[in-house]
Design a protein around this nucleic acid. Structure first.
Length: 288
DNA sequence: TTCTTTGTTCCGGA
DNA sequence: GTCCGGAACAAAGA
């Protein structure tokens, strides 16, 4: 369930660990992830240096020399981790929920110089990795229609007002729509609407300015907080020793069906229902 | 065996 | 043509 903050955390970790290394060889252990893997394209990235790592929405962009970019999406359970030359997993923050012995789901292995390996592991294979031309990134089908990054200034009141004009959708649906704003998933949208005190099935035409302001404020603040904490939408975040992380405890509504409302001013219980095809948690009393 | 989980895409009806 | 909601899809664990 990596959403924007988790992908950002992975990006930063990779940036600290593999930039300026060369790709020596790529071992591919599966025919397809979300999409069929084009093995011949991966064969062409031998002896090419990793220049930079970027993020757009929930996509990772590993920029290589020679106008090549590795485009990766983690899907539900995709993760990257790094092994050093002794085969020890590097102590970085981005390999949650990973069993050391789980070689079965190590689908791609990038052998780098200095004996390092970058491994893509994905239990459910809903993620994907593609090789694309760097110069075509903004027009690539996966990226072309993405809405603004929620942490940038383009995500503001005027933008929201303009976008929802003449639309009759519920606010949860539109926040999860990557064309409207890119990078939010089910978990963060549940949290944003709880903090904004707006019911998830509220029609966007019934939102007032104050509510839009709250959505913007809490979207930005919760994403920033989560990035700072190292990514929190992972249910069972483990550190390198396998100890459970503290972050999964910090959701206010997600996964809290039947528990007392966490505002502290309300004695009602968190309800769960399906809205926009996804598990939706909310407080009937606090969210209007 | 069925249900659940996710982001993304596609399709039918209005 | 456009908008909206629902279904489908991927894989695996409970």
């Amino acid at each position: 369930m990596p959403e924007l903050p988790e992908v950002e955390v992975v990006k930063r970790s990779l940036k600290n660990n593999i930039i300026n290394l060369n790709i020596k060889k790529v071992t591919i252990n599966t025919n397809k992830l979300r999409y069929k893997i084009n093995k011949s394209k991966f064969n062409k990235i031998k002896d090419i240096k990793i220049l930079d790592i970027k993020r757009r929405s929930k996509y990772l962009l590993i920029k290589l020399e020679k106008n090549i970019t590795i485009l990766a999406h983690l899907g539900m359970t995709g993760k990257f981790f790094i092994l050093d030359k002794t085969g020890t997993r590097k102590k970085t923050s981005f390999y949650y929920r990973l069993n050391n012995n789980d070689k079965k789901h190590n689908h791609l292995i990038f052998n780098l110089n200095k004996g390092k390996k970058l491994i893509y592991n994905d239990v459910r294979k809903f993620g994907f990795i593609k090789i694309i031309a760097s110069k075509n990134i903004s027009t690539h089908p996966h990226l072309k229609f993405l809405g603004p990054e929620p942490l940038l200034k383009q995500f503001n009141i005027k933008y929201i007002q303009n976008y929802i004009q003449n639309k009759n959708r519920n606010i949860k649906d539109i926040l999860m729509d990557q064309k409207f704003v890119s990078g939010l998933g089910n978990i963060y949208v549940n949290e944003i609407l709880f903090l904004s005190k707006i019911k998830p099935n509220k029609r966007t035409k019934n939102l007032n300015i104050g509510e839009m302001k709250k959505i913007i404020y809490f979207t930005k603040s919760i994403l920033k907080k989560s990035i700072k904490e190292g990514g929190s939408s992972i249910k069972d975040f483990n550190d390198s020793e396998g100890k459970q992380g503290v972050f999964q405890q910090q959701f206010n509504v997600y996964g809290r069906e039947g528990e007392k409302c966490t505002t502290g001013k309300c004695d009602k219980v968190i309800k769960k229902m399906v809205i926009s095809q996804r598990a939706t948690f909310f407080c009937k009393s606090c969210q209007k």
